[in-house]
Nucleic acid binder design. Structure first.
Length: 169
DNA sequence: CATGGGATTGACT
DNA sequence: GTCAATCCCATGC
């Protein structure tokens, strides 16, 4: 279950698509629902969901998951860590799920990685918090980071300034 | 062709 | 709190 995401859009410099269409960024301009997987810091594959209509460079970075199944396999890939550390970061979750650069540009609804419908969190209707994005130097003030309120599986704690996000239908 | 930065993590002080 | 690992890819000469 996805518990933390960040949005990126060609209109702001933190987005890879800001520089325009290149070999690397081309997938960001493709069809919504395809995967954009890129390599970061020489060691981590980071998974994004391409958004917006074709020709507009935008994506959502998947930053953290709450593991619901396959925990044993995840632990094999990640080592002996606590459940809440298995997927609590964009690099951790791709390692836990075995997602590499080879899955760049694959279809997220009809490919090796499959997104499912939204899962209602335990305890009923979940709230979503919004805050600023992590680990970037450009456009650091955009409130484009979202997380499931109260989740113990997010990548970093939420500051007191985090607000509840307006929920889309 | 050489250079440099990066949507991170884990180990260590 | 600091810091190194490590490689893709954009940029510039």
């Amino acid at each position: 279950m996805i518990v933390e995401t960040e949005a990126y859009h060609e209109s702001e410099p933190a987005c890879h698509a800001y520089i325009g269409r290149t070999t690397r960024t081309a997938p960001l301009f493709g069809r919504a629902g395809t995967a954009y997987v890129y390599f970061s810091y020489g060691m981590h594959a980071l998974l994004n969901v391409v958004c917006e209509r074709e020709g507009v460079g935008a994506a959502v970075l998947i930053r953290a998951l709450e593991p619901l199944d396959g925990v044993g396999l995840m632990r094999e890939r990640r080592g002996l860590v606590r459940d809440e550390d298995l997927c609590s970061g964009p690099g951790k979750l791709t390692q836990a799920l075995g997602i590499g650069l080879d899955l760049n540009r694959t279809d997220l609804f009809d490919g090796p990685i499959r997104l499912g419908p939204a899962i209602e969190p335990r305890g009923g209707r979940g709230r979503i918090l919004v805050g600023t994005r992590i680990g970037i130097t450009k456009a650091p003030d955009l409130p484009w980071r979202f997380c499931a309120a109260g989740s113990r599986h997010v990548s970093k704690p939420w500051p007191p300034g985090a607000r509840e996000a307006l929920r889309a239908a």
